[in-house]
Design a protein around this nucleic acid. Structure first.
Length: 832
RNA sequence: GCGGGCGUGGCGGAAUUGGUAAACGCGCCAGAUUUAGGAUCUGGUACCUCGCGGUUUGGGGGUUCGAGUCCCUCCGCCCGCACCA
């Protein structure tokens, strides 16, 4: 069989068909075999794959093929995160149903992905918008309701006017909608929440177990997001009212210095406190202004502190001081209790606020240096709050204590009268999963005038998204207007009732898809627990850093919630996480507006899938950003053509031997090639296994190919040596560029596909050289090189080093003080 | 402010973890071959120097026979969180 010219298109099509026909990537759970689950974050079916997808999925494919060749039973699935807004917006634009747009895009993208030759088990493909899929999350929701993990409440929520829906806290970035960048507003709404805060501590603690497997950056981001802080809740009596206000503070040790109180504009007490205030109008105007302020402005750190006095006071429980209560613009309802005891001497914000409104400062923490001198900080001298540690003063019985132990002592003192307790506070809020959009999974509850909120009985699932819905031009969901959807009978009393018209946040779907892949066609259950037990956890998860908090936190929570509702036994979904870097062009992100988008389809058409994969894996290590280079992909193509020509030239001489199989004594050239061959096996295996350093693994194969080119003429009489080395190069490269490698493997005479061959292992014996080259240094500077027998005795090596011509020159007239010998590597002669 | 990461040729990036800095590739230069080529092959390519040699991993200092790698310090860049009480 003559190879002819390298034509990627025909080679790639041929092997893609061959893999499909041989079903070599289809796998089943088999407890007798070691498993490996490699998963790439599934795409949103936008219609077109981009270079980010190619990078993500190429990384995953190398891992999958490599592990498979190493003998693992590899689960490598692909599917579609198919609910979401773009489908709805496209449907509005083209006056069609979101499903139609979505399924068309899925078909298009599946075809594009297929052209890249990824080793997916396509039988497991899923789309989250299919009732067979979302049915099960409706069931999960019912279980969550039963367990109290889902609940409904009315509260101020993030409203995106651009998307016409609420957003979870995680979906608001710098006050803007994560999807459309509209400024997010606050709106009081009745919504469904999942109690992710119940898991705050576990989510935080279990991050320790992910150490090493997950990037430090992601762990840190999750820790910050959960935001655990230790402190106390202290309760203050409102003067002349039968009301109390509870604050959260990390500094209970400064309680004696609390001179006023600040509460958030959204605090439920505002109305009660100001009901009969003389300046009620002024207060209301202030509260309204702050509440309507856009989030970016309100969150800016240069925003001037301002507030308004409510006319009410509360009583400091330890000093009896009457503390004026202010509504202040810097107090957030979403953190702690929405009320802060103000200690202007020891908190910078309170300091600034006190200066503006002329409120008293009281020093209660004294710097140690001053205490040692018998002095006390004078409020009149203070230019800023003193927030460092110190010794308590002006604090009654606690005077003289260190402030750290005083925290506990003060709280214990208050605890006797029920006014204080140590608490832990989290920044994390419960997850709002309601969305006022159409293209999502319906939330399975019914509202009955008599019975209230009634869960849909399990037998009535799935609640289907109507196929005859007509999307509205204004973007609002058509569901509330659809009588046939809304009107239903109360499952409890049978009277007419109304169906919930909100749908789930799309992150609900992506929080468990990795479980469904284990058993995607199950019609009786979300998955067979035995299959999930076999395949889970995901051994290697690969995706973008943008999901560091959103999807990755939700999925971790979901796994724990499903564990507690009896669906799974695992507690963390993803053992190892690789966050791949972005693909850039001209130093920036590829975007339509910049006009710097490189279309993968065009690259594949011009250079082939193999060259595209090779370049994207070679140009940069996976975690780093990758700068797209048109010359770079050309170079990748050139290398493949060079490899092709090598096999073509040697074709008649090559025998279908296994990689690394040549072991005859042979000529020096054969020995040299054999060394390179086994060294390459060692390096490539190590580079892929340890750190996914595909770039250096590829470089190693290139070196081997260069070596074969250099030695081939000397080895024309030893075809076995050449055959073995070529087989090695082709095999080691095959996870990266599988098509061309299959073709060359076949050209060597092999009958079985390369994809199902065993990954080669190196022979230590081949790495032992008779002669080694050592470097001689004089005072740490390289002065010569020489060859010596492998593992020659130190004395011999030392003597040889000293005899080197150039070394002699540098030793002249000097005294040798010390000679350091690193066996088979280096000699350093220290002279003085 | 808090936390995480990074800094190596013209460029992307290597360096078996303390042992020849710049592997591999891109680009560039020269030559060969070719009707021609953006194809292919050979050689060169960190900087200074004709050369001997000297200098070089953001700057400075330290440990060591030996430092890109370890320690201290300063500078710069990127990312995340942030009026968090």
């Amino acid at each position: 069989m003559a190879l002819g010219k390298y034509d990627p298109e025909s080679v790639e099509g041929k092997w893609q068909r061959a893999w499909t026909e041989s079903r070599c990537f289809e796998v089943e759970a088999d407890p007798a075999k070691p498993k490996y689950y490699v998963l790439e974050m599934f795409p949103y079916p936008s219609g077109k794959i981009h270079m980010g997808h190619v990078r993500n999925y190429s990384i995953g494919d190398v891992v999958a093929r490599f592990k498979s060749m190493q003998g693992f039973n590899v689960l490598h699935p692909m599917g579609w995160d198919a609910f979401g807004l773009p489908a709805e917006n496209a449907a509005i634009k083209h006056n069609t149903h979101p499903a139609k747009w979505t399924y068309q895009n899925i078909a298009d993208m599946r075809a594009q992905l297929s052209r890249l030759g990824y080793s997916y088990d396509w039988r497991r493909e899923l789309a989250t918008c299919r009732p067979e899929y979302y049915k099960w999350e409706q069931k999960f929701f019912l279980k969550f309701l039963e367990k109290g993990l889902a609940y409904r409440k009315n509260s101020p929520q993030n409203w995106c006017p651009g998307c016409n829906t609420v957003l979870a806290n995680e979906q608001v970035e710098d006050g803007l909608c994560w999807r459309c960048d509209s400024p997010v507003e606050q709106k009081d709404m009745e919504q469904w929440f999942l109690r992710i805060t119940d898991y705050a501590d576990e989510l935080l603690k279990d991050l320790e177990g992910l150490e090493g497997g997950w990037p430090e950056r992601v762990l840190t981001m999750q820790r910050n997001w959960i935001g655990k802080s230790y402190g106390a809740e202290l309760t203050f009596q409102v003067k002349d009212m039968d009301e109390t206000i509870t604050v959260f503070t990390t500094r209970p040790d400064t309680l004696f210095g609390a001179t006023f109180m600040s509460i958030a504009a959204e605090h439920p007490m505002v109305e009660k406190l100001t009901g009969d205030a003389a300046n009620k109008d002024e207060i209301d105007a202030f509260v309204t202004r702050i509440r309507n302020m856009d989030r970016i402005k309100r969150g800016a750190d240069d925003l001037e502190k301002e507030g308004v006095f409510t006319g009410r006071y509360c009583v400091n429980p330890v000093t009896g001081v009457e503390m004026p209560i202010y509504v202040a613009n810097f107090v957030l309802m979403g953190y702690g209790t929405g009320a802060v005891m103000a200690v202007p001497a020891h908190d910078q914000r309170d300091f600034e606020f006190a200066a503006k409104y002329n409120l008293p400062l009281k020093v209660v923490i004294n710097p140690r240096e001053l205490s040692d001198k018998g002095e006390v900080l004078d409020p009149a001298d203070m230019q800023a709050a003193y927030s460092d540690p110190g010794i308590l003063v002006n604090s009654g019985q606690f005077d003289g204590m260190e402030n750290e132990p005083a925290k506990k002592a003060v709280v214990e003192h208050l605890d006797k009268s029920g006014l204080g307790k140590m608490t832990v506070n989290y920044r994390l809020r419960d997850w709002n999963v309601s969305r006022q959009r159409f293209w999502g999974a319906p939330i399975p509850v019914i509202y009955c005038d008599d019975c209230g909120v009634v869960p849909v009985p399990e037998k009535d699932l799935p609640i289907l998204l109507p196929e005859n819905a007509q999307v509205r031009a204004d973007g609002r969901s058509p569901l509330p207007e659809m009588a046939e959807f809304v009107n239903c009978a109360c499952p409890k009393c049978g009277k007419p009732a109304r169906r919930e018209t909100d749908t789930f946040d799309t992150f609900f779907e992506s929080s468990w898809y990795y479980l469904r892949y284990c058993d995607p066609r199950n019609e009786d259950a979300p998955f067979d627990p035995a299959k999930v037990d076999y395949w889970m956890n995901v051994d290697q998860y690969i995706g973008g850093i943008e999901h560091a908090i959103l999807h990755l936190l939700y999925s971790r929570f979901f796994t724990k919630a499903l564990r507690d509702t009896g669906f799974v036994s695992t507690t963390e979904p993803f053992a190892n996480l690789l966050t791949q870097g972005m693909v850039l062009k001209d130093g920036g992100k590829m975007s339509k507006s910049k006009g710097n988008v490189v279309d993968p389809g065009a690259m594949i058409a011009q250079y082939g899938a193999d060259a595209t994969r090779l370049f994207i894996l070679f140009a940069s290590p996976p975690v780093k950003e990758l700068e797209w280079s048109d010359q770079g992909i050309e170079g990748a193509f050139r290398f493949l053509a060079r490899l092709w020509r090598l096999v073509e030239e040697l074709e008649g001489a090559l025998a279908p031997v296994m990689p690394g199989s040549y072991a005859e004594p042979g000529s020096d050239a054969a020995k040299q090639l054999r060394f390179k061959e086994h060294d390459t096996i060692r390096r490539v295996t190590r580079d892929i296994e340890n750190e996914f350093q595909f770039n250096t693994a590829i470089a190693a194969v290139m070196e081997l190919v260069n070596e074969i080119y250099g030695l081939k003429d000397d080895l024309s009489g030893e075809p076995g040596a050449l055959s073995s080395a070529v087989a090695t190069a082709v095999t080691l490269l095959s996870p990266v560029t599988p098509h061309i490698c299959e073709e060359l493997w076949r050209a060597m005479g092999h009958a079985e596909p390369l994809a199902v061959q065993a990954w080669p292992t190196h022979d230590e014996g081949a790495l032992v050289k008779d002669q080694v080259t050592l470097v001689v240094q004089v005072n740490g500077k390289v002065r010569g090189k020489f060859d010596a027998p492998n593992d020659a005795p130190q004395d011999v090596v030392k003597a040889m080093a000293m005899e080197q011509e150039n070394v002699v020159r540098f030793l002249e007239g000097k005294t040798v003080r010390k000679v350091i010998v690193i066996p088979n590597k280096l000699v350093n002669i220290v002279v003085g």
